[in-house]
Write a protein that binds this DNA or RNA. Structure first.
Lengths: 208, 208
DNA sequence: TAAATATAGGCGAACAAAAGGCGAAAGTCA
DNA sequence: TGACTTTCGCCTTTTGTTCGCCTATATTTA
């Protein structure tokens, strides 16, 4: 969200309120603000405060004296995030469709994996038991092996790529779908390749 | 997205706007730009700014004085994310437990709402039909009203706060739980207050 | 090759809206 | 009641927008 910008005068008012509050422990009155900035009318000050409120720089508490709540907290900590490739879509039984258009998604660091990370979009409701819906994005950490029970992007017989939970059973591997209607796939160890492990899920509801 | 190239003169204007904004905390006026670059006509400056806007280098706010929004799109790929307050937890039938410790989560911009945004952690499996699991985080846009069918954080009778889908039915409001075992709550319009609308969901699988 | 056309840059004046301001009266709250 | 905040007109200054017209330097077209 881009915060609406301030004019020089508005910034002066905001700065004054902020420093006054820091120095006194309570907020200034409209009159105090006025005389500090050389304004003779309370109406003018009030208008400024109202604008600052609308722009989201002040939390106003109507009709309260010394309406404390002067939270001028424009703490826009710009913290690094990283652009992650959005490779394509994956559905339960289909190969990954690689998205030719190299689109990317920016993610905060805490959502990333240890090594290389990429994002896939899930198609279909087949993952519904994992609480993953059609259109959700899964964040995948690229890895060649997985711990029992992890959700993986796996490649079976070199061609089919799916999203399932992986369980090792002796020299075999069981790929458990997240849909009760689908049976697990059991294959030999050597026929399955792990492409990566799902470390996060995210869903954005489209705006109306 | 390849950005259209700039002519030397256009770049001069853009550079000036950028450095001015950094130094002052607000954008220059057309006049200030003009005299800095030795242009006597505001029309000339205005034309430049318009072009820069069309080419996507500036965010213009028509008719606004000091229409800051000088979004000087940095060529650097480091994309800003913002720290969002993590307010507490919410479950289907319980009030929000406000987390005293003001923790926060950083999110990329595309996941944010229009206005104030905050994050709540979901407790319990009651939202499972919406594919929201225990421990998931919901990103909430602070709003006082919601469109039919949106998932909202609603306050009923001033005390109970829940996460449900909202449907208007005449002068009544139906709050539909996401669990088939729970019955919808139907209340009078005035007894329910919308605190915000869920705009995104995210889940992080913990590392082993 | 000359003429027509396009594009970037520029000028000044006239105008409309936003920003900033005033004083006084009315409304609130403790 | 007194200390504050809100609201109501009304005003001035600042600032952005638009319009017509001008000058170079290319680029096309006849």
């Amino acid at each position: 969200m881009t915060k609406e910008p301030l004019t020089p005068r508005q910034k002066e008012v905001l700065d004054f309120v902020q420093s006054f509050t820091e120095n006194h422990g309570y907020a200034p009155t409209i009159n105090e603000i006025g005389s500090a900035l050389g304004l003779s009318s309370t109406a003018t000050v009030h208008k400024h405060l109202q604008i600052l409120g609308e722009k989201g720089y002040l939390d106003t508490m109507p009709r309260r004296s010394r309406w404390l709540q002067v939270k001028p907290q424009p703490v826009v900590t710009s913290c690094a995030s990283i652009d992650i490739p959005l490779l394509g879509t994956v559905s339960a039984g289909r190969p990954i469709e690689i998205n030719e258009v190299a689109s990317s998604v920016s993610l905060p660091e805490w959502m990333l994996g240890k090594g290389e990370t990429f994002v896939l979009q899930v198609k279909g409701e087949s993952m519904i038991d994992e609480a993953i819906k059609d259109g959700d994005m899964v964040v995948v950490e690229k890895r060649e092996s997985a711990v029992n029970g992890e959700m993986v992007i796996a490649c079976i017989d070199q061609d089919e790529v799916t999203l399932k939970r992986l369980y090792r059973e002796g020299h075999r591997v069981r790929l458990q779908p997240s849909n009760p209607a689908m049976l697990p796939i059991i294959v030999e160890d050597r026929d399955v390749t792990v492409k990566g492990v799902v470390i996060a899920v995210l869903r954005k509801y489209r705006r109306n």
